[in-house]
Amino acid sequence: MAPSLDEMIQMYRKMLEIRRFEEAIADLYHRGEVPSSAHLYIGQEAVAVGVCSALRRDDYVLTTHRGHAHNIAKGVSMRRLAAEILGKATGLCKGKGGSMRASSLADGVVYACPIVGSNIPIAAGVGLSIKLRGTDQVVACFFGEGASNIGDFHEGINLAALWRLPVLYVCENNLYALSVSQRRSTLVEDIASRASAYGIPGVVVDGNDVLAVYEAARRAVEDARGGRGPTLIECKTYRWLGHHAGDPGFAYRPKEEVEAWRERCPIKRFRRVLLSRGVTEEELASVEEEVEEAVRDAMDFALESPYPGPEELLRDVY
């Protein structure tokens, strides 16, 4: 079941929001406004949007250090997200979590786990709570291919599989774990092939094709809601920029490789699809303009927001 044209325009808007948001954060980073590192998602937008578009508002997401996009795709306020990244009092986490932990439980983004792979068992537990509470929610857990060699991946997926928990394990394979390419860390070609070790389906999709990601996620959601347990979805994609905003990203990757992936821009590609389905240039241009404005507004809000006062330091420990 494909999304409606309106839903597709909405997906385009979300992808563009992520792109523009990350560009604006990169800009603020280089101006010294971001107090932490910032791991940007540019190039991977089809994954967050494809998966989150297949979720309901009350479904859960667990993200990572590269998690701005999942927040935006799940409908979190860009204003409060930007404020969090800048460490401001108006941020999602009152500025205490920052870029790598920005999350909003009210929107279903439970937490961003900045230690690679740690969200995989935690997602199993969210699935367990869904199961025991008897709701038909699901949880989508995002991680990179770099996470697939840590114990948490194997232990966590085994547990979710064993207990048939409603979890989507979404591997965003952007080919590099910081500077180490998949080839230099892992002998298997497809991370999804590891699913067979846990007795669950593993699916490989083109992670730059938002509709393909959406379709894979939709099927996995259907299985999860139906009590048939987790799916491991591997989305093949690429991070255009460095590991974080301060890393040019060329010390360990050939320029030609980066250029080749930039040619396969998921947003331009989806734009062409929309035009071919009858959406007009004018409609898309107006979406693009609205997104620019919304991102500008979010950054202004974040910049103008105050930092938390000293009374916040000792709050929320227990």
């Binding site: 439970v110 068992p121 935690i122 709570s129 232990e155």
Partner: peptide, 17 residues
């Protein structure tokens, strides 16, 4: 699988158990 069930306990705890 201590890391897994500890993580699972945490995930369950933050969502209502």
């Amino acid at each position: 699988s201590e890391e897994a069930f500890m993580g699972a306990a945490i995930g369950a705890a933050v969502t209502g158990l």
